[in-house]
Amino acid sequence: MIPAARVQAAIDLLDEVVLSARDGGPAADTLIARYFKTRRYAGSKDRRAVRDLVYDAIRRAGERPESGRAAMLGLLQDQPDLAAHFDGSPHGPAAIVEGEKPTNGRLVPRWIAPLLSDLIDARERTALLARAPLDVRVNRLKATRDEVAGMLSDATVIDSLPDALRLPEGYPLEKSDAWDQGLVEVQDAGSQIIAATCGAQPGMTVIDLCAGAGGKTLALAAAMEGQGTLIAADTVRSRLQRLTPRAERAGAGFIETLLLDQGREGAALGSYEGKADIVLVDAPCSGTGTWRRNPEARWRLTPDRLTRLTVEQARILDIAAPLVRDGGRLVYAVCALTDREGRNQVDAFLKRHPGWTAVPVGGAVGRVWGMGQLLTPHHDGTDGFFLAVLEKS
């Protein structure tokens, strides 16, 4: 592909991303994969160049642009050499005409900026849109970190976590023997911190109440050394179905999955009331802490959606509380950086549930924020997370 054709391909993809964000469709990475699946003529360098242009344009535009072309015109302010490729050639974009409006360069949507934690300063906002590294968790059910580090070139140790390695962005992990043998799982350091904070031990009864595809469930399984009861619960069947082959690959066959009926979760969870040593609530959230991985998520979030999410978070916490035994723990986490989803949510829970207390999260990273702790990209080198540990007295 000639350079102008790469720019036009990026514009075409950005058009799809804009429409998908507006209509609740697939994420950008899915759209990019589909696009190139039907365009075999594009080589690996072409695919990488187009992908980089798409994500550079997305990261620059905090508000959803009117079109892919508007997003690309905005990128010209950071990469002015691209203007030469708007040449009207057969496979390139049309020439720029006077009066065309580029997107603005605001990193954070205007409406949500006042809702973010006060800890999210200019440096953190920039880091939220930087490219994320590739973090992996070594599966201690099968190997040690030192063993896996020796199998992965360019791997570096994350000192604050016993099973974490960091790889360069774009590292071909799935082509490695470590991946084929189930020795590693892709997992951001922040997610690994949340799993470690749970303090799961062999023989415990642990419930991952919003398990999704089970990334944190697998980390809990490794900490439990395959011993005890570990329930992965979710309301979406397709998510839990993805966990089963992952658990088999990891050697964590003792995990039990539990499909919940949304709005009637109590019917399926009643037999566990008062029995869990740990309940993890990794709640549905705004995803503001994951913008460096999914920058177009800023275009999907609305004030109404944020309100619905906070209501759902409170509801799930209320479902989780009766499951915890006396002296047990409820660990609440969201990959979000708004106070409404973080410290305010915990404050409201403690008011609704006498007899519960927040205990220090501890650890070498993060900053105390209200009754919990905040992890952020600039300060901690992780995705953004709020987490809190609540104990039933």
Rank of each mutant, 00 (worst) to 15 (best):
V236M: 04
Y272M: 08
A283H: 03
L309H: 00
A268N: 08
V279R: 05
L240H: 02
Q262W: 14
P284V: 13
R249S: 10
D277C: 13
V281C: 11
R308G: 10
A232M: 06
I278K: 11
K275G: 11
I278N: 01
L301R: 07
G270Y: 05
A276Q: 03
L309W: 00
A297C: 03
G263T: 12
R315N: 07
V279H: 04
P284W: 02
R239M: 12
R237N: 14
R237E: 14
R308S: 14
I231H: 00
R264M: 09
Y272G: 06
T235S: 15
V279Q: 02
I278E: 02
V311S: 10
R249M: 11
V311W: 06
R246C: 12
D282T: 06
R237L: 06
P303F: 05
W299R: 02
E256H: 12
L317K: 00
R293Q: 04
D261F: 09
T229K: 08
T257V: 07
G266C: 03
A297H: 07
L260G: 10
L280D: 01
I255C: 02
G266S: 09
R237V: 06
R249D: 09
A297R: 02
L280P: 08
D261L: 13
F254D: 04
Q241V: 14
G287P: 04
S271T: 15
T244N: 03
T307D: 15
T307C: 03
F254I: 11
G274Q: 08
G270R: 15
C285K: 00
P284G: 12
D261P: 01
R293H: 01
I316R: 01
S286P: 07
E273N: 08
P303E: 15
A247G: 09
Q262H: 14
R242T: 10
I255H: 09
R242E: 14
I255D: 03
E273L: 13
R305N: 00
I255K: 05
R293P: 03
D261V: 14
L243E: 00
R308N: 13
A247H: 11
V279K: 03
T257N: 07
R300D: 00
R237G: 07
Q241N: 11
S238P: 05
G263N: 13
R298T: 08
D277N: 15
I278M: 10
A276F: 12
C285D: 03
L230S: 05
A268K: 09
Q313P: 01
R249T: 06
R298P: 10
T310R: 05
A268L: 08
P303R: 12
W299L: 10
G287F: 02
G251F: 11
R246H: 06
Q262Y: 12
R249Q: 14
L240P: 07
F254M: 15
